[in-house]
Amino acid sequence: MSEGSKVYGILLEFEDPQNLVVACRKVRDAGYTRWDAHTPFPIHGMDAAMGIRGTRLPLLILAGGLTGLALALLMQWWMNAVDYPFLISGKPLFGLPANIPVTFELTVLFAALTTFFGMWGLNGMPRLYHPVFKSARFRRATADRFFIVIESDDPLYQTEGTSDFAASLGAVAVEELED
């Protein structure tokens, strides 16, 4: 490690998902909060093992959907009944049944866009660089290896203590990451 560079954290490599999940439970129980697990595929029960709370995304989606609903009704009311009133086959200028399809579509559109971009936002994306990319070992995270990264800004992080703790988790390799 070169002089003056900051330590980003510590990388632990595991050979199979079972060991990773066991190690995750230990990291969670040790009280670490700024850490993450990287796996080539989703592992059921991972959220519980890492102690991750349920996502807030559904609330955002509900708000997005309701916004779309309100906007659609407002738009149609303003266009059809206020700005350009035009009598079509004797229907009321603002008749709810005729406005439901557009309202439905805009509700779905706004909810879907909120889902997509909300997921990006909550996950801190887009992110084009991450310190783990410097590790040659980490390239196998998309193929056949399983990793835990404990970040150095975690309140519990200590250079010596965390390395010892990491060694006790049964990782096949431990590596310090530069920022």
């Binding site: 199979d16 998902p17 079972q18 999940v21 595929f41 592992i43 059921h44 093992a49």
Partner: peptide, 8 residues
């Protein structure tokens, strides 16, 4: 896919 949780 691996199933680390307990099967009923």
């Amino acid at each position: 896919m691996s199933q680390p949780h307990v099967m009923p």
